[in-house]
Design a protein around this nucleic acid. Structure first.
Lengths: 195, 195
DNA sequence: CAGAATATTAAACAATGTTCATTTAATCAA
DNA sequence: TTGATTAAATGAACATTGTTTAATATTCTG
């Protein structure tokens, strides 16, 4: 068998990314192998390397997709809020929720060894920027007189905090058995910061 | 060659842990292999598996050592401060500093896939607890009237935030080119929280 | 319809974590 | 001082990994 034009380049790339996405969900980042991806889409491992530089490259593309998805969820959460403070809170909960619902995706994005080299899809940085922008936007409502630099700093500061809670929570490194400790901590962190 | 009593069980275990610690520093968690560890201490890979269940087990022991070291540094930072708020700030800086100085150690502790199973050295949880305790302690000075549960929650909330800044900073995921952005963010986060 | 271009494969490579029978030295009993 | 027992360390093997590449078979082009 060789050269069956079952899929176009773009279709194949999407097949690979999608299969990898699901494999990551099912097995966790560390157990996703080139052969498993190839198996799932009905190709052989070698094929992957024509569209992607290596496995890491594929993971980066998966991250881009997931970040975009996360971004829309955060956007929706913010949109449903009445006040800017509520918006940030809701976004925080949405973030926590995403991490809890898709721990493996979250791990791939933030707690796996996926170095973003030159060949990385520029999308990733853009997506993270967009994420921070959502927070900055709310803060500009809370502090209308603050300059851009201050807002950027504060947004990143608070959101890093939110990220910290989510990170430790997914990895069960909070070591507390309070019910919904992560949500309570998030509430504490955000309200004290924005007050 | 076989059975040369060059080292006792305990000595050998320490040799392994120490060699792994340095290899992690030099190569990053992902590039440390059983053969490299064995090479460095002048043994063969098989030997590692008499003292440790597997590579992951070794990593967990390395984490325990590193956590203890981090703990002493945070303790020292707090001790040198005048006020409790300063103490938390200094601890935060020390945390950030440790992450920046030893990014690979930090990665192994928090951003690598090192599942802590049953066989895990209980030390790890105890070390994390001790770390949180350092923060809680300062907060009990700031809020003398607060009950234990509130303090625990607040300490974990703030420290998760600090951890978030450090995490994103080590991985260059803050995507800002402000000079010492991480330190500024940390200051913002802590002072606003404790104010 | 011949020939060029290319998508896909299959096989190979070195390196990985881990296991285990074998070998060698140290320990113990006499 | 022997001989037998115990245990430490080896080395070879295994399956699996990411990645490369020559060969293959199909589609495209003239």
């Amino acid at each position: 068998m060789a050269r069956r034009n079952d899929h176009s380049k773009e279709e194949l790339a999407e097949l690979v990314i999608d299969a990898t996405r699901h494999l990551v969900d099912e097995l966790g980042p560390g157990r996703v192998t080139a052969r498993k991806i190839a198996d799932r889409i009905g190709y052989t491992p070698g094929t992957l390397y024509q569209r992607f530089a290596n496995l890491n490259d594929i993971f980066l593309h998966v991250n881009a997709v997931n970040l975009a998805q996360l971004e829309t969820q955060l956007g929706a959460a913010a949109a449903s809020a009445e006040t800017p403070i509520d918006a940030v809170l809701e976004m925080g909960y949405a973030y926590l929720n995403y991490a809890a619902s898709h721990p493996n995706r979250f791990a791939l994005m933030f707690t796996s060894h996926v170095p973003h080299g030159e060949d990385a899809p520029g999308h990733v940085q853009e997506r993270v920027d967009a994420l921070f922008a959502l927070v900055t936007q709310q803060m500009s409502v809370i502090w209308p007189e603050a300059d851009a630099e201050t807002l950027e700093l504060r947004a990143r500061a608070l959101w890093s905090g939110v990220h910290g809670v989510a990170s430790l929570s997914v990895r069960d490194q909070l070591f507390t058995r309070h019910w919904q400790a992560d949500r309570k901590m998030l509430n504490e962190l955000i309200t004290r910061f924005l007050r």
